[in-house]
Structure formats: structure tokens, C-alpha cells
Design a protein around this nucleic acid. Structure first.
Length: 314
DNA sequence: ATAACACGCGAGGTGCGGGC
DNA sequence: GCCCGCACCTCGCGTGTTAT
């Protein structure tokens, strides 16, 4: 661990003790090994979540926007578009990033080849795709097989999206997800207005606006708990809207809930509603002075091996 | 050795019914 | 009405096994 991480780990340790004394016991980390591992996971989560901000502060090559090159990176591309004030294109890239994810083997190849129409000239920019979503779906339908295997190159979804289908017409396929996303956004008149409306409804409270959008985003087909949370968190981190997770949002989660169960009850199997675990986790985030996403993320990773610090992969 | 195949599974999603 | 738990669905991936 780097020096500043150690300083932070020490502070976190103190705050955990205060939480145990004043709010709720943490039987899951009574064991010293488990406690060290949990703190380690928090440090790791913060590092990953800060990564986006750090990248934003460095200069980014223009080729990151180009799906025809190996440099294509949807997050860096989104940062570049945001820097020139193109909120629509930046947010659209965040959507693609969350929908397809980053595959362990093929990286962003699937996003690049959907966004870049398999290298056939034009790009499915927000302007193009939102103008005629049906045209996109027909293109997707025609290129199902090509997207999967053209040139002997495998293109896959990321681990978080392993249940997602590339299908253009199925209710839970990519076509429907893209189409419902476009409708959701254009119904408000674009991303800028969509986010502005949410902030206005929330009196500019970043957490309330997040909660508002989290509910609204049910309109996007196949975007469940994880995708909504990741999308809106990323929109916030990139500064595309001044929003921030209001809660760990445990509704329908498995991994993070298991982590919370273990932390707050000491057992993986125990009674106790996920609503209760959710509010305890939210409270923990506040006490540790970290973003809700940090707790959500670290609980999930910690629970996989509670006494053994494993570096996050994939 | 490499490809084709089979199988179990997962930081998931949706819908429904029961309990409060 | 909210919240919970459950059953059932989904689909590509990793892993191991069998066929070339």
C-alpha cells in the first residue's frame, strides 16, 4: 500500500471503531484478519473509483474517440466529449460502456464495433442513433453474427453484463435496451435537459437527483439495479451531472447484500431484511466519509474472501 | 495439439404472491 | 402500499471432456 493509502486506512480503522461503538456492532470484522481485509477492499475501491477523476486530469489522445483504432476507450472518449461540451455524445458513450461492459479478453472491441459500425465509415453517434433508432436496430439485426465473430475476432460482453443478449428485437436484447434508452432521453429533449430536470426536481441536491433518476431509469429495458447504479455513478463521476449515489441501492442485489449480511451479523445466512442492511450500509458510508459506491463495491469484493485480500480482476 | 462440444453457473432480471 | 423472498427465465462464459 502507498503511504497515503496507509494514512487513509488508519483513519478508516478509527472510524470503524467509532461506528461499532455508536451505531451498530460489526461482528463480521471482529477477527483481525477480516478487519484488515475489509479495510484493504475499501482502499482498493476508492482507488478504482478515483481512477476516472485521475484520468480526467491528464491529457487524453484524440484517438481514444475513434472506434476504428485499438486506442478506442469509451470512458476516455466520454471525457473528451464532455470537455468540449458535448453532453449528449459523452452520456451516450457512458450508456454503451455500461451496457456492453469491458470483456476480459476482447476489451472494448464489442462497443467499438457497434459504435463504429464494424468500420463501415460512419459512426453510430448520438445524433445518428437518436434520429432513427429503428435504423440502428435493423443494422444490429443484420450484423449479429459479424459482431460476434467477424475476422475470427471474438467480441464479448463484460462480466457484469453476462446475461445481456446482443439480439436486436428480443425484449431483453440490446436493440430494445438502446431504443428505450433513446426514448427515455429524447422525451426530455436530450441528456442535458434530462439531468437538469432531475436536479431541478431535487432542488439541486446531488443525492436526491440520483435517486430521482434511478427510479426514472426503469424505463430503460434490461437496465436493472447494477446497470442503473453504474450508469448514474459514472455520469456523476464524469461531471456530466452533479449527482452522487444517495444509497448503496440493495434492491435485488446479491453480492453486496451478502457482504453487508456478513459484516453486520457475522453470518452469511441470517435473518434481517435487505432494507435494514441497506440503511446500515448507507450509514457506514457516511461515517467513513466515503462515496456510497465505495461501500457497495467493497462489500461485494470483501464477501468473496473475507479474510484474504484479493486484488480485484476483470 | 487443437477444435468442437457439453455443461454448470453467475456483483442478473422479472414477475408474482404472501406477510406486515 | 411496501417490502420481502421465491421461482423461473436468460445467455454468454469458463471449464473440462471428447472428437479430430
Amino acid at each position: 500500500m502507498r503511504k497515503e493509502d496507509l494514512v487513509f486506512a488508519k483513519a478508516t480503522s478509527k472510524r470503524l471503531e467509532a461506528f461499532e461503538a455508536n451505531v451498530h456492532p460489526l461482528p463480521g470484522i471482529e477477527d483481525e484478519e477480516a478487519r484488515r481485509t475489509f479495510i484493504f477492499q475499501i482502499v482498493e475501491s476508492i482507488r478504482r473509483i478515483r481512477f476516472v477523476q485521475q484520468v480526467s486530469n491528464r491529457s487524453i489522445a484524440e484517438s481514444r474517440k475513434d472506434p476504428a483504432t485499438d486506442y478506442f476507450d469509451p470512458v476516455r472518449a466520454a471525457i473528451l466529449y464532455k470537455q468540449v461540451g458535448d453532453i449528449d455524445e459523452a452520456s451516450w458513450l457512458v450508456f454503451l460502456f455500461v451496457h456492453f461492459g469491458k470483456n476480459v479478453k476482447s476489451g472494448y472491441r464489442l462497443i467499438a464495433d457497434v459504435y463504429g459500425r464494424l468500420g463501415h465509415g460512419r459512426v453510430w453517434t448520438w445524433a445518428e442513433v437518436s434520429k432513427d433508432p429503428l435504423e440502428f436496430r435493423h443494422w444490429l439485426d443484420k450484423n449479429q453474427q459479424n459482431l460476434k465473430t467477424l475476422g475470427g475476432i471474438h467480441r464479448g460482453f463484460g462480466n457484469h453484463r453476462k446475461y445481456q443478449s446482443l439480439d436486436a428485437w428480443k425484449p431483453n436484447g440490446t436493440g430494445e435496451a438502446v431504443h428505450t434508452y433513446i426514448s427515455w432521453v429524447t422525451d426530455s429533449g436530450g441528456h442535458g435537459k434530462l439531468f437538469a430536470n432531475a436536479l431541478a426536481a431535487a432542488d439541486d441536491n446531488p443525492e436526491e437527483a440520483f435517486a430521482h433518476l434511478y427510479k426514472e431509469m426503469n424505463a430503460v429495458r434490461s437496465f436493472g439495479r447494477t446497470a442503473k447504479f453504474d450508469y448514474l455513478s459514472m455520469i456523476g463521476k464524469l461531471g456530466l451531472a452533479a449527482i452522487r449515489p444517495d444509497s448503496v441501492h440493495f434492491d435485488g442485489a446479491t453480492g453486496p447484500v451478502a457482504g453487508a449480511r456478513l459484516l453486520f451479523s457475522g453470518k452469511l445466512k441470517s435473518k434481517g431484511s435487505s432494507k435494514k442492511l441497506e440503511s446500515l450500509s448507507d450509514s457506514l458510508a457516511s461515517h467513513l466519509q466515503v462515496d456510497k459506491q465505495v461501500i457497495e463495491d467493497s462489500l461485494c469484493n470483501w464477501q468473496k474472501s473475507p479474510t484474504d485480500p484479493v486484488q480485484f480482476r476483470g
